[in-house]
Computed example of a mutant assay.
Amino acid sequence: MKPLVGAMQAWSCFVISIFAIIILSVLGILFKANHPELVGGDEDPENGPEVAATVFIAVMVYAGFLVFCGFQGLLHIRESRRGAIAL
Score class of each variant (00 low, 15 high):
80 S>W: 13
48 G>E: 00
56 F>H: 02
35 H>F: 12
60 M>A: 09
17 S>D: 00
34 N>E: 12
51 V>H: 06
48 G>P: 05
22 I>T: 06
21 I>S: 00
14 F>P: 00
51 V>I: 13
11 W>R: 01
13 C>W: 13
3 P>H: 14
67 V>I: 14
16 I>C: 08
57 I>A: 11
28 G>E: 01
21 I>C: 00
82 R>K: 06
46 E>N: 15
74 L>E: 14
52 A>S: 13
42 D>K: 10
26 V>Y: 14
70 G>S: 00
57 I>P: 05
43 E>R: 06
8 M>L: 15
12 S>K: 10
22 I>R: 01
36 P>R: 04
14 F>G: 01
83 G>A: 07
2 K>I: 14
57 I>Y: 05
53 A>V: 14
6 G>H: 11
64 G>H: 01
86 A>H: 11
71 F>G: 07
77 I>L: 13
46 E>R: 13
36 P>M: 12
38 L>T: 05
79 E>K: 07
12 S>N: 09
79 E>N: 08
33 A>C: 12
2 K>F: 15
16 I>H: 09
72 Q>L: 02
66 L>C: 03
54 T>I: 04
27 L>N: 09
56 F>Y: 10
69 C>H: 08
9 Q>M: 08
29 I>A: 10
19 F>S: 10
5 V>N: 04
56 F>W: 05
81 R>I: 09
76 H>N: 08
6 G>Q: 04
85 I>F: 11
77 I>S: 04
50 E>V: 14
